[in-house]
Amino acid sequence: MNATLGATRDALRIDSVTKRYTTGDHRVTALDGASLDVREGTFTAIMGPSGSGKSTLLHCAVGLDRPDGGSVVVDGTDLGGLGERELTEFRRERVGFVFQSYNLIDALTAVQNTLLPARLARRRLGREDALKALEEVGLRDRADRRPHQLSGGEQQRVAIARAVLTRPSVICADEPTGALDLARGRQVLDHLRAVVDTHGRTVLVVTHDPTVATRADRVVFMADGRIVDEIDARDGERFDAGSIALRMTGPEES
C-alpha cells in the first residue's frame, strides 16, 4: 500500500563486493568490486551479458553465496557476520526466491511447496495462508496438484506464492521467465509487479530480456563484474524495450 511513500529506505546495500571462482586451472573473477543500493518497495532489474556476474551478484545479495570481499547488508543485517545456520535462517525469514526452473520439490503438492519455508522456519502459517498466496497468483484451484501436473508458468507462479508467503524483505528472481513462452512470461511478471505494488516488497530480478526489464522501476547494467550503467524510470529517462536494449549493447561492446 505504501509502496512509493516509504521508498526512501534501502532494503539492500551492496558495497564493493568481489567474488572469484577457481575452475580447473584458471581463476575467474565473477564480481570485481560491484556496488548497488536498492530502495525498499522497488522493482529492480539487473541486466548484462552472460558472464557479466549478474547471477553471482544476486546470489551474494541474498546469502546463497558468500563474497570474497566487500559487504552485503540486507534490511539492516550484515550478511558477512552470519554463520551457516544463521545465514540459512536469515534466508528463509527475509528472502524469497524464484529460479529459472526446478523451483519446486516433486514430492510435495503446490500448497505444500508454498508452505515449505514457513514450515522449515516453524512459522504459524497454515494451509489457509498458503491458499491465499496461491489465490493471488491465480492458482487456488491447483493447490493440491504436484509439480509435474503443472505447466512451467504455473510452477513459476507457485514459486512466487512461496516467495511472498513469509513476507520477506527482498524477493529475488533469476531469469524467472527464461523457460517460459511470451504469454506465460508476462503473467509471471504481472505477479512479480503486483508483489511490489500491492505488498510493498522489494524485488530484484536478473534477466537479459529487455521486455522483462521494462516492467522494472530501475534497470542496472553489469559488465565484467561491475555495475556500469543504470536507468531509473523515475528519472524520466526513456524506458522501453528498445532503449534498454540499446543501452545494453553499450557495455557489451566496450
Binding site: L64, R91, R92, E93
Partner: peptide
C-alpha cells in the same frame, strides 16, 4: 533446493 528455501543442514 530445500537448503535454498531455508532448510538448515
Amino acid at each position: 533446493l530445500l537448503r535454498a528455501v531455508g532448510g538448515t543442514p
